[in-house]
Amino acid sequence: MPLPKCRPGFTDHIFKTAAGVQLPLRVWPPAKPKAASAANGPERKGAPWLLWIHGGGYTCGKWSAPTSWVSSAFGDRGYGVVSVGYRLQPQASMLDMVQDCVDAAAWCHDHVSPLGLNPDRWAVGGASSGATLAAMVALRATHKPRAFVNVYGLTDTEHYLDDEAVRAPPPDDYVMSTDDELAELVQDWDASNASVQNPWASEMPPTVSLEDARAAFGLEDWEPTREQFVRSDLYSYVAKNRNLMEIVYRRSKFGTDTAFREHVRSHSPYQVLQKRETFLPTFFMHGTGDNIVPVVQSWKFAERLVEMDVDIAEVYDEGKGHVYDLGFEEGDEGWKKNVEPCMAFVDRHLK
Results as ranks from 00 to 15, higher is better:
G125Y: 02
D110H: 13
A141D: 11
T132Q: 11
A141I: 05
R146L: 13
A131M: 08
R121G: 06
W122T: 02
F148I: 00
S113F: 14
T132C: 14
P114R: 11
G116A: 12
A147E: 09
A123C: 06
A127T: 10
V112K: 05
G130I: 06
G130L: 04
A127E: 14
P119M: 06
L115P: 09
A134L: 07
K144Q: 15
H143A: 08
P119H: 10
G126M: 07
K144T: 09
A131Y: 01
R121P: 02
G126W: 03
H111D: 08
A147V: 04
D120H: 11
A141S: 14
A138W: 02
G126R: 02
L117P: 06
V124Y: 00
P145T: 09
A123F: 03
D120P: 03
A134F: 04
R140E: 12
S113L: 13
R121T: 08
V112E: 09
A135M: 03
H111W: 14
G130W: 00
F148Y: 14
K144V: 04
G130V: 03
A131N: 00
L139N: 10
W122S: 05
A138I: 01
L117V: 03
A131W: 01
S128Y: 03
A131H: 00
M136T: 14
M136Y: 08
T142L: 11
L117N: 02
P119N: 06
T142A: 13
N118A: 11
K144L: 14
T132G: 01
A134P: 08
G126T: 04
F148R: 02
P145Q: 13
A141H: 05
A123N: 01
K144N: 08
A147W: 10
V112W: 12
M136S: 13
V112L: 09
P114G: 12
S113E: 15
S113V: 14
L133A: 06
A131I: 00
P119T: 07
P114I: 15
T142V: 14
P114M: 09
W122V: 08
L117A: 05
N118W: 01
H109Y: 14
L139Y: 08
A138V: 00
D110I: 13
L139W: 03
R146I: 01
V137T: 05
P145D: 05
D120Q: 13
